[in-house]
Design a protein around this nucleic acid. Structure first.
Lengths: 325, 325
DNA sequence: TTGAAAGCGCTAACAA
DNA sequence: TTGTTAGCGCTTTCAA
């Protein structure tokens, strides 16, 4: 319709392609395209360029309220750069992780965003080894891979100090599952903070089997056989939700009897009663950063590996109060 | 490697293609493929077949806990049939809906799953008119489109009866935004149920601006200026969460002063305190059914339009009790 | 039952 | 600056 060769049209519509096209021709092509409602067929393009403009995204559990905001950031970040996400949830199942990754790899994604990496993750290790652009989110597995995470150490330090300042001396931590890297990071941060902020205190740590309310409730009931504990730092907000339930069952009240701090600031955290004091992780921003990193990495696969650490902060709500006398 | 023509290999690996291949050759090809780690390139296939094995999925709000389970059902249902989902969240913005749909259409999806349709939705109407396979989820816009929804009328009837049996006579409903079709369905069902179950009672209805806790809280505070109300049916669980907050603020207790019923049974509903009595919508199953319907529709675009209505049930937890004397 | 040939829509390399 | 040619990997049509 513009009276030019297809290749010229292609160049006119893709200004970044080699071969500059005159302004006049470009205009003619663009106008014709608009009139015809022409949009490039991504399939033809992919076949030629060997790129799909698609990123595979693996999350551990869509039902954990932490991830939807992350995905929102990922989705927006990718789409604004012309990419689409293929999202898969592994339900915290290592085998399913490798299956899903196979499916996504079958789709020839240009890169992968992995939020499911466990501490020693063979599937992810193999992915990285194969040289495919990969970015880890929130979880860490080896240092040769770019990652986005949050400064949990700082946030947890703030949380412990907050509790200490309110007179709590017996502070417990309900850690997440051992195989998840953030569990270890947070537990370590907790121990460090207690020994720093509350020298001489003996840090109490129990472990929840999963990052779920049910597992949190079980762990909390176990923990509270020790009634000297007046404050709990939960491994994440879902575990904190379980703590509310456990406290209720045990006839204890929050924050009067036990203060509670979560980690994540998941969507409903401020609507729990009492509203949850929690370490805010910038979930959406983490997703957005991850999107940026993976696109950069695809453009420059050999650029040095970067780790992005995003700031956290403590938001004080109703679930923490002064220790009972 | 199997010593056959590519076309033969293609046929051997795609048993459904025309042209039957001998068992022997097939075996040779399959074995060679396995050894080479060969997987079909979906891009080449798409270019040839004009199909992408990709479904565009539009949801209104990833942050509303109702949708992650739906997506889980969609994801599994599609993947088990060889399809992938391209998921986009519109944040309840009509303009963004049409933009995102354009982006997805640019990707040449084979079909679309729309969970965002408002009552009179031009974008969706145009999509359907263009003849692209489309299935609506949870929301209804016109009858020429297949849809998956839940039997809210039944569930709401059960809820009202439940309240009535516990002695509640002043039962109010906090409806969702007017432009969403489920808001109207539920309001109507509520009015019908009240006049059936509680003849003579005057159904009280207020409207929340959005399906969010904040909007629910505002609506509930407004509603409770009438202190004769002893029970509330919230338009969905997020609105119910807002009701908990409003009751707290007003110094009222649930269920002692006011009983509360939600709709959805979202992931955290049972962990709220008191645990939320709610109408369970089979979210994941709705997603799975939608996946099934859209794939069927792609296979047989001219089959008669089907509406799937899935059953609901009331789950009674701690937020409802006998009316105060 | 298998092979040969062609072409889906696009853009990279080369030529003009 | 634009045109020509070729080919990405696959499956379909036609022929053998």
């Amino acid at each position: 319709m513009a009276g030019v060769h297809p290749a010229t049209a292609s160049r006119a519509l893709n200004p970044r392609l080699p071969g500059r096209i005159s302004a006049e021709t470009t205009q003619r092509v663009v106008r014709a395209a608009a009139e015809l409602g022409y949009v490039v067929d991504p399939v033809g393009r992919s076949l030629r360029t060997r790129r799909s403009a698609t990123i595979g995204v693996l999350v551990p559990d869509l039902l954990n309220p932490f991830y939807p905001p992350v995905l929102r950031g990922v989705e927006r970040g990718l789409r604004s750069r012309g990419f689409e996400a293929l999202i898969a949830s592994t339900d915290n199942d290592v085998r399913r992780e490798s299956e899903l990754l196979e499916v996504l790899r079958g789709r020839r994604c240009d890169g992968y965003l992995i939020a499911t990496a466990t501490r020693h993750d063979a599937t992810v290790a193999e992915l990285v080894r194969s040289g495919v652009p990969t970015v880890l989110v929130n979880r860490l597995a080896g240092t040769e891979t770019p990652s986005v995470r949050s400064d949990d150490v700082r946030g947890i330090g703030d949380a412990v100090r907050h509790l200490r300042e309110r007179g709590h001396t017996r502070i417990a931590h309900i850690a997440g599952p051992a195989e998840i890297s953030v569990s270890a990071t947070r537990e370590e941060a907790f121990r460090a903070a207690v020994s720093r902020e509350a020298a001489g205190a003996d840090p109490v740590v129990v472990r929840a089997e999963q990052f779920t309310a049910a597992a949190g409730e079980a762990a909390c009931r176990h923990l509270l056989r020790d009634r000297t504990i007046t404050a709990i730092l939960a491994g994440n907000d879902m575990i904190a939700v379980g703590c509310y339930a456990a406290l209720d069952r045990l006839g204890l009240r929050c924050p009067r009897d036990v203060s509670l701090v979560g980690i994540n600031d998941m969507p409903l955290a401020e609507w729990l009663r009492p509203a949850l004091t929690t370490v805010v992780l910038p979930a959406e921003q983490m997703g957005a950063e991850a999107a940026r990193l993976i696109v950069e990495r695809i453009a420059e696969p050999d650029a040095p590996v970067r780790d992005v650490v995003l700031p956290t902060r403590l938001v004080v709500r109703g679930s923490t109060a002064a220790a009972r006398a």
